[in-house]
Design a protein around this nucleic acid. Structure first.
Lengths: 195, 195
DNA sequence: AAATACGCTTGATATAGGTCAACTCAAGGT
DNA sequence: ACCTTGAGTTGACCTATATCAAGCGTATTT
């Protein structure tokens, strides 16, 4: 039995609206539980991101691999976040990204077509989508600004203050890549700021 | 008489839906034309971004000023784009950004409360908002990835292929700042790629 | 028309952060 | 228990890009 309560609570909390029993039934039928073990891929480069996942448990990273074989983490995701390459998911084009479980991962997943149905049929779901869209826009704006005008050290401090729990959940080399730094540089930054 | 046709066409095109005469009337009443001369500010740091503007004519830049007094352009905007610091606009918090007209600017502007009304009352408007939200999410994802994993030269080429008209409309030092580069570096990149 | 400011270029130099390599330590696999 | 693998650290060196400075040409102001 999968844990749908996490999803229900999330929708209700974000949207500020209640889900009816019918709503819950609809969600239960069309969100499919999926488990991935650490290191398994939710999405591989070149594939279409057919599913969006709601993370019930675990963590994941979204990353690209450049021509030199270097990985760049674009996103780190935890419980109660949505997991997808949105470009591929919305447009059904092949993805340039990989999404990999960093810990054993439990998601509830569904397709774009099905999400469209939820948006039409479940008011709380559609209200949630609007709030998320706002939050994403704000978060993106801030992250972009940090990436453009902050030094490595400032970006690290920004991360600490915005997502302190990331330090507990993700290994340092993953945080470095997320911040656009080499692991060595992050190690040195931490050394200096500890003094 | 302000040019509302640009706004109507935009909404209908993006949403794929028609606006009724009533819809148009409502928009006409609650979007206020505003003209700014080159160098005037649409928003100043510290102020709340009370209005969102639809650009009918002209261009603008959204930028921050860091402690060293250096400006960083986060966004360049042209006709048929929306102009706002979304964080400040949605949350009504003081903005960290400045928005300045780079050319004489004509916008149609409205408040957040009024936009909420449009979303409820005008189906084409709300459909448009959903499409824009998708487009923004995709564009942000791509821009973030470019910022994190591309070299200066790659970012410039990325800009050329995604927004070729920017080269005509914006001076080179603005493009440099938008790309997170010094004007000197962009100048040298162009010199090298021309040969 | 003169004066001024500004955008762009070019050269010389500085620096933040990357790369490479070696070492340590902890964790997982057999 | 042993071996291997991978994360983290540290040092030496390197490179992409920033900074500073000067000069040129073209708008803009007066």
């Amino acid at each position: 039995m999968a844990n749908f309560e996490a999803l229900f609570n999330y929708i209700q909390e974000i949207s500020g609206k209640q889900l009816s029993d019918d709503d819950k039934h609809l969600l239960t039928v069309h969100f499919k539980p999926k488990k991935l073990r650490k290191r398994q891929y939710f999405l591989q480069e070149g594939d279409v991101c057919k599913y969006i996942g709601f993370i019930v448990k675990g963590s994941a990273r979204t990353f690209t691999v450049d021509e030199k074989g270097h990985e760049h983490i674009l996103k780190l995701s935890l419980e109660n976040w949505w997991l997808a390459d949105f470009e591929s998911f919305y447009l059904l084009t092949p993805s340039r990204f990989n999404i990999e479980a960093l810990e054993d991962l439990e998601v509830l997943q569904s397709t774009n077509a099905q999400i469209e149905e939820f948006l039409k049929q479940i008011p709380a779901f559609s209200a949630m989508a609007n709030v998320i869209s706002q939050n994403y826009t704000i978060a993106n704006q801030n992250r972009m600004q940090a990436a453009m005008s902050f030094t490595a050290e400032e970006r690290y401090e920004d991360l600490i203050s915005n997502y302190p729990h990331f330090l507990q959940r993700f290994p340092q080399n993953m945080l470095a890549s997320y911040l656009g730094l080499s692991p060595e540089t992050l190690s040195r930054i931490r050394k200096n700021s500890f003094k």
